[in-house]
Design a protein around this nucleic acid. Sequence first.
DNA 1: GTAGATTAAAAAATCGATTATTTTGTCTAA
DNA 2: TTAGACAAAATAATCGATTTTTTAATCTAC
Lengths: 225, 225
Amino acid sequence: MSNSLPTPAGPAGTASSRVFDHLRKDLVGGRFVAGEKLAINALKDRYQVGLSPLREALNKLAAYGLLVQENQRGFRVPKLSRDELDDIAQMRLEMEGMALERAIAKGDSLWEADLLAAAHRLKRADITLDKGEEWEHLHTQFHRTLVAPCGSVWLLRFIEQLHDQFDRYRRLGPKMPTIRQELDEQHHQLVELALQRDAKAARALMDDHIHKSYEVALKRYQEHV
Amino acid sequence: MSNSLPTPAGPAGTASSRVFDHLRKDLVGGRFVAGEKLAINALKDRYQVGLSPLREALNKLAAYGLLVQENQRGFRVPKLSRDELDDIAQMRLEMEGMALERAIAKGDSLWEADLLAAAHRLKRADITLDKGEEWEHLHTQFHRTLVAPCGSVWLLRFIEQLHDQFDRYRRLGPKMPTIRQELDEQHHQLVELALQRDAKAARALMDDHIHKSYEVALKRYQEHV
DNA sequence: GTAGATTAAAAAATCGATTATTTTGTCTAA
DNA sequence: TTAGACAAAATAATCGATTTTTTAATCTAC
């Protein structure tokens, strides 16, 4: 996939790619206030990095949609809005539904194994009572695995981007264990339907899953305003 | 649309945004060889800009998908492939079809006027025998106008991105006047169907339009390899 | 000859300082 | 008071030089 975003940079990566990954996580995880203007000098200290790599990371994040750049007045965290949340959720419905159907048509047995593994890891992390980012990462990974063999690099790319945007809403507040459990069960049902190659039922469930997630995100958003 | 790419920066914009716009045009217009490694120092001279703003522009283009960035080894122009062209075309079918249906459902009379105007300008430019980028710009503008009132910022954003990618293939070689005329007629038929609010027929025509464009792009790609 | 090590040249990434622009605060005149 | 002008401070953008890493070239041991 020659066009995908750089994979997370380990200790060997450049300063720019490391701060990009870190900032992306923090932006998606709600560590910044929506609408906030970023104080570049403060970020320099916070992420222990020089001005040049920092600015390069900020530029990438702006092109990716996690920041807004205004000429001569730096970078801000994009505002949140009900309309945009609705937009993002609807786009997720269309695109992840499409991707899931294709993945079910194309996925091989290696995919089946990966999917089971991803679901298992996610469930385990849930039991181990979610220390920080761990569950979030495995959750992202699960959804990524689910649609991975859809055959379209661009579809996957857009879905990833939409997930990041969606999570800015979903992760506004603290955990909601009640709904969470319901959503977790759907993950396993999704695996089952995928293994049975029941595209229609899987898509319906995916729609429901996204819709329930949307309700969580909307509640968070409304509480947060 | 708080999240869209920066609008073209006039003389008042920053060096970074100006070189971004320029590079974007050149990349889409096939002024670079696919797969080519970019010599940053050469670009500095070519675009008359310092290293910092240039690198910021390159970073944005990489996040946008018009460049590939490899840690510690700079930037390259993405390779072209048949598979990717197919992917892009299929995504265009799905997304522009969706956008057009929604635009027809939502567009008001101002949109109708804009659409007629955009189509007219495009036709005129065609008669005036296309001096350089002019036709390309009006063509982009026409397609943008067509789907503009679809109501989804993210859908529009993705379509824009796909157009840029698609045009890397379509604009590989010289003009093809024969097919071009056929495609130009479709632009007017699209306007007509849009004004009649015939979503179904409009979408069918759009599918055909994209399919014909795809055939042009594919031919160009195959000749170019 | 050829794989592997060594060095020299080139290129990428980063730093520290400078310049340009915006923002803030203060003052003045209606 | 309050709109507008001005100056001072803060911030953004850019430059030029330095450091780091990769690439190319050369050499050596088998």
